[in-house]
Amino acid sequence: MGDSSFPSGGFAFSWGLETLKADGIVCDRSGVEAFARSQLRWRWATADRPFLHRAATASDVVELAGLDCEVEVMTLARELREGSRRAGRSLLRAHGSMETPGVSAYRSAMADGNALGHLPVAQGVVWKGMGMAIDEIEAVSAYAVAAGIAQAAVRLALLGPLDAQSMLSALREDMEAVLVEKPPERPFAFTPAAEIAVMRHECGDARLFAN
C-alpha cells in the first residue's frame, strides 16, 4: 500500500519543500531531514493521524463527510488544502477502479458534492477497505509522508538517491516514536515555515510541484 509506484498522484506534491529550497531555507540533507521530522511530528501525528483513525472507524459516509469538513477548515494554506483533496481523490479513484470495499459510497457522496475526499480521510477509508488493521494503516500513512518528502527532495536535487534511502532509515525512529504515542484529543498542526512556504508557492516561480 505504501509502494511509491502505486498510481495515486503522490509524486506531484512537495508540501512546501519546493519553495523552502527556492528561498534557500532548506538546502541540504540536514534541512530536508528537519523538514520531514516536523511534518511527521507536527502535522501527520497531530492532524492526519487522528483523522485517519476516525475515518477508519467511521460508521457511515455522513461521518466521513464531517471529517472532511474538519480537515478543510483546519488547513489554512490553499495549496495544502487543495493538495490534500487532490491526493485523496486520486487515491480513491484508483481504489474505485479496483472496487475496494467502502470506496464507491464515499466517491458517490463526493460526486454529489457532499464530501471532499481529503487525503487522511481517504486513506482511512481505502486501507480499512483493504482489510488493514489501524496500526498498519497508521504506519503506512506515516511512511508515505516520509517517502514522499524523500522523493521530492531527490527531484529537487536536495538529496542523492542513496542519501534519500539513508534518510528514510534514519526517520524510522521518528516514525516509531510518534506511532507509540497517544494521538491528541483534538487534531491540530503547527508547521509555520512549511505553511508560509506553501502560501508563497501559490504565486512563486517554482512550479515543478503542486505545492
Binding site: G10, R86, S90, R93
Partner: peptide, 9 residues
C-alpha cells in the same frame, strides 16, 4: 504514463 491519476482527476 506511470501515474496519470492527477490528469484523470
Amino acid at each position: 504514463r506511470e501515474d496519470p491519476t492527477l490528469n484523470l482527476d
